[in-house]
Design a protein around this nucleic acid. Structure first.
Lengths: 181, 181
DNA sequence: TATAACATGTAAGCTGTTACATGATTAC
DNA sequence: GTAATCATGTAACAGCTTACATGTTATA
């Protein structure tokens, strides 16, 4: 999966693993995240498989950069992945909900403090999404006007992020009421 | 994580790996799922660590069953896990949203058909949740009256499941409109 | 008579996380 | 001077998935 994301990003324009890590953190992190270690090792494997090529750029003064470029083979893999529709629901793994499921015999104050923390985190996250919106728009208008079509879909995923956070927030607020009573 | 879930279930009453697989499928599957292979191997490790004990029951005619029981050590581990609150947001990994993110250059009909499939799946799922509600209630009233307190929290997680499905559904419907225009 | 449900396991492999490791530049 | 940002990597391990493997009983 992470390899598809890396191919998708490189299909926009050539960049380094570091750049991709940043883009993932800024844009896809609310539905898919990755550590830099996984990104670097995946890119190496992808190069071995001929999906990407890299050139090592030695910068005087600045740190060296390995810039990756997608190959026609890589574009084929990306297209094939997108052409094969998902037939099932994406699986969910949410530790917090598991904790709630087993919370019946916990200390009331203990549960509440955890619920307050989570509610605050979701509130923060939701607030950040509003700013991200602008951020993406600015970036593509300055850097890559060809990505305006893509931006509509990026915005759509951000919209899902907002809906998700709002639903979570509402739920936690109701849960707090339930536990308090 | 799966081990905490297994401890949580065994804390209700002793049961087999098969039973736990069924309970996970029926109750926690919308926020945590597991394959039987993982359940059986995890239980073996947990027994080696002294968190559970098992007795192998040979049934004439019927298949043999290995019934697991939680130990005081296992209960301690469970309590410790619940007592340590989560300080961050649970990470999300949703392949479908990744696909939407990279869908700008896909064939319009291809995207739409995938969106229709997903919408239908979420609708189905949402409908199933309504029935699950009853299911849980009946089960505990018949089998284990001591679990009525727990049922409040189980219901809460089901409520989150419904909110999630509804939010997803609304989002996909809007996305379909966006793509169609 | 064939399929679903009951019931338990092993093994190989893939994915992903955490920790270890290094070194330069820039901003405060 | 010290913390943050830039920049790239390796290694060990944990967690999870997929496939292989077997056998019984109840139901349609």
């Amino acid at each position: 999966m992470i390899k598809n994301i890396l191919l998708g990003l490189l299909n926009y324009f050539p960049m380094t693993g570091y750049d991709m890590k940043q883009m993932i953190d800024e844009s896809t992190a609310h539905f898919w995240h990755a550590h830099h270690s996984q990104i670097y090792t995946s890119l190496r494997e992808m190069e071995k498989d001929g999906w990407v090529v890299s050139q090592f750029i030695k910068n005087e003064g600045q740190p060296d950069r390995r810039v990756y470029t997608i190959t026609p083979e890589g574009q084929k893999i990306l297209k094939e992945w997108l052409a094969k529709p998902m037939t099932g629901l994406p699986p969910i793994k949410d530790e917090f909900i598991v904790r709630v499921f087993f919370s019946a015999h916990r200390d009331k104050e203990e549960i509440l403090s955890e619920l307050f923390i989570q509610r605050q985190l979701h509130q923060q996250h939701l607030a950040e999404y509003g700013q991200l919106d602008m951020h993406i728009r600015q970036k593509i208008q300055i850097d890559h006007r060809g990505l305006l079509q893509d931006a509509r879909f990026w915005k759509a995923t951000l919209d899902m992020g907002k809906r998700y956070e709002q639903a979570y927030l509402d739920w936690i607020s109701e849960l707090i009421e339930m536990v308090e009573s």
